[in-house]
Design a protein around this nucleic acid. Structure first.
Lengths: 308, 308
DNA sequence: TCATATCTATAGTTTTTATCTATGCAAAGA
DNA sequence: TCTTTGCATAGATAAAAACTATAGATATGA
C-alpha cells in the first residue's frame, strides 16, 4: 500500500472513471488500472465495480477511500508544515471573525497585516459562530476569531484578548450612578443584539436569572441598539472596544458594571486541533499586538511553538 | 514522499540509529540512508543530525516525524478496516467498563461473548471514567462502557441502554410511602458511592441544590452502602440493575423516585471518533441483546454501519 | 442486430526506483 | 595513532511503475 495507490484510488472514486482520473493525474489509463488492481489485490478487496460501462465504487470501497482521503490529508500536512517552517510567510491564509468582533478589529487588523506580510494572500470574512465551527472542521478556513467560551470537539482555542462589558443607559434615564447594578434598573428594558450569540451569552452571564423574557428585545447591530435605547429608554450592553466609536455625548451615558469579574468576555483564535501552520498562525497575534492596547492582550504561551 | 520513507524516518527517530532501525525494519543500513536522504531532499529539510557518533532528530524533524506517525496511523487504519469488514470476527478486542456498571453486566456479558465470538481474544477491564478517556485517546483500548453524559472531544458516544434509579431506604426509617420525594426525607442522610463519579453525578441530578454537603457520605461500593444504610439509617440511590442482587427483604425497602424522567442514567459505548472496526464494535450491543431486558436497550441507529 | 464508440484490462517493453554488497570516510575512544 | 563504530557512497541487481499497443466488453445508434 503506497500513498500513490491511495491517491489513484481516490481520483478514480472522484471522477468515477479510470480514463478521466488518469488524465487528471497525468498518467496513462493502464497505469491506473494496474496500480489499483495491485492495491485491490493487496487489500484483497474489490474497490470498484467495473461491470457495465461506468465505474462505481463498491460499498467497502467507499469506506476505504474515505479513510484513504484522511491518510492523504495527513501526508499533505507534512508538506504544509515544511512550507510553514521553512518558507517565508507566503501563500493563502483564510480566516473568519465573529460579527460582534469584526467591526472593532478588522480595519486596523487588515491594514497592519497587509503591511507586515505583503506576500500572504489574506482572506477575511465575517462569520457567525456555528458557521465558523463548520468551516474550521471542513478546513474551509485556517482560523476563526470568536468569543464563544464553548470548547468544541476537535478545535483548539488560543486566547487572544479579554475585554470588559459596559452598560449604555438611555438619555432619558439619567441617573447619575457611577456604577451599574442590575437590580437598580429591574423595571427598565434591556436591549440586546440579535444574531450575535457569543456576545449575548457573555452579556447575559452577569445578570443570569434576573432578566425575564419580556425585558429582552433584539436588534441587528450595536449602533442601532444605541439609537433604540436613546429613543425608547432602557439600557444595553456594549463591549469595551465599542467605546471609541461613541460620541462624547454618548460616552457620558456609559457605566461600569458592578462585580466586573462577571462582565468580561474572552476573545480567542480557534483552529483545528491538528492545524500545522504555526508560523502563519502566529501572524494573527503578532498583528494584533501592533494596534491593541497591551493590557487587553493575553500573554499566555500555548501549545508548542504558539506564543502570543 | 512515500509511506515507506515515513516509516523509515519514524524508525530512525525511534531507535536513534540507522543501523538499529535497519535491523528492526529488516533492510540494510544503506537502504535506510538512501531513502531518508531522498525524503530529506524532497522536503528540503534536514530531519536528522548525523554529526558526531550518535543520530539526533532535528527540531523540525521532531515535528515532521510526529506528523508522519499520524499519517502512518491513518494508513494502518485502512488495513484495520479491511480486516474488520472482510475477516471473520477474530483478533484482539480490548474494552473497559466503568466501576458502577461492571458488576451488573460483565458476568453475563463475558459468558455470552465468548460463546458467540470464540475467535476473538477478548480483554475486559474495569476502569474509572478519566482513565478510560485517556486509554481511548491513546488507543490502549478499543471501546469503553460508561455513563458520563459529557461529550468528550475526539470521542464518540453510542447509547447502549438506559436504566432508572431507585431509592433504598433504611430498615429503621420504614415509611410506607409508595414513591420517594426528596423533600420528605430532607433531614435524613443521603449516602452515595465514592469513586464512582458517573453514578454520583446522575444520582445527584434529581435533587440538585437540595442536598447540603453535610448530608453526604461516601462508600466504596453499593453493597457496603446498603449495609451502612441498614445500620445507620438514611437512604441511598441504587441503579435498576442492582435490584436483582437484593434479598426479598431488602427489595421491600426500595422506592421509586418521584418525577422519574430525572432519575435515569444513560449507559453508552465510547470510542475514538475515528474508530474503524465497526463490525467488531457491533459485537458489544449484539451481545448485550442476549441477556439485557429489551425495554432497557436503545434502539437508535447511529453512525454509518453501527446499528443497535 | 451489427457496427461503433467508449470503456477498462492485458501484454510486452522501457524507465525508474528500491535494495543489495562492498567499501569509503569521519569521529570517538583506547 | 590505531581501532572501533556508524553513516554515506558507488555500482550492480532486482523490483516496480510507467509507457505503447491492443484486446475485450458493453452500451448506443443506425
Amino acid at each position: 500500500m503506497t500513498l500513490q495507490q491511495l491517491k489513484y484510488a481516490e481520483a478514480i472514486d472522484r471522477y468515477r472513471s479510470f480514463a478521466a482520473a488518469a488524465e487528471a493525474l497525468d498518467v496513462t489509463q493502464p497505469t491506473l488500472s494496474a496500480m489499483v488492481s495491485k492495491l485491490e489485490e493487496e487489500l484483497d478487496v474489490r474497490l470498484f465495480d467495473r461491470t457495465s460501462r461506468k465505474v462505481t465504487t463498491s460499498l467497502i470501497g467507499e469506506k476505504i477511500i474515505q479513510q484513504a482521503r484522511k491518510t492523504l490529508m495527513e501526508a499533505d500536512r507534512i508538506k504544509e508544515m515544511v512550507a510553514d517552517i521553512k518558507g517565508g510567510l507566503t501563500g493563502e491564509f483564510h480566516f473568519a471573525v465573529g460579527p460582534s468582533i469584526a467591526p472593532y478589529i478588522l480595519p486596523d487588523f487588515i491594514r497592519n497585516y497587509m503591511k507586515d506580510y505583503p506576500d500572504v494572500q489574506l482572506s477575511v470574512e465575517e462569520m457567525r459562530p456555528e458557521a465558523m465551527i463548520k468551516a474550521l472542521r471542513d478546513s474551509d478556513i485556517d482560523a476563526g476569531i470568536a468569543s464563544t467560551g464553548h470548547i468544541c470537539a476537535g478545535l483548539y482555542e488560543i486566547p487572544l484578548y479579554t475585554e470588559r462589558f459596559f452598560v449604555y443607559l438611555s438619555e432619558s434615564c439619567q441617573r447619575k450612578l457611577p456604577v451599574f447594578n442590575p437590580a437598580e434598573l429591574e423595571h427598565e428594558h434591556l436591549w440586546v443584539m440579535k444574531e450575535v450569540q457569543c456576545l449575548r451569552e457573555s452579556a447575559f452571564s452577569f445578570c443570569k436569572g434576573r432578566i425575564g423574557r419580556r425585558h429582552v428585545y433584539e436588534a441587528g447591530n450595536i449602533d442601532t441598539l444605541i439609537r433604540i435605547v436613546d429613543t425608547n429608554g432602557g439600557y444595553t450592553i456594549i463591549p469595551e472596544m465599542h467605546l471609541p466609536m461613541l460620541t462624547p455625548q454618548q460616552r457620558s451615558n456609559v457605566r461600569n458594571i458592578e462585580g466586573d469579574h462577571l462582565s468580561l468576555r474572552k476573545v480567542s483564535i480557534y483552529i483545528r486541533e491538528d492545524y500545522v501552520r504555526e508560523r502563519m498562525l502566529n501572524t494573527i497575534p503578532d498583528t494584533m499586538k501592533k494596534f491593541m492596547p497591551s493590557d487587553m492582550l493575553e500573554r499566555t504561551l500555548l501549545r508548542n511553538g504558539i506564543r502570543l
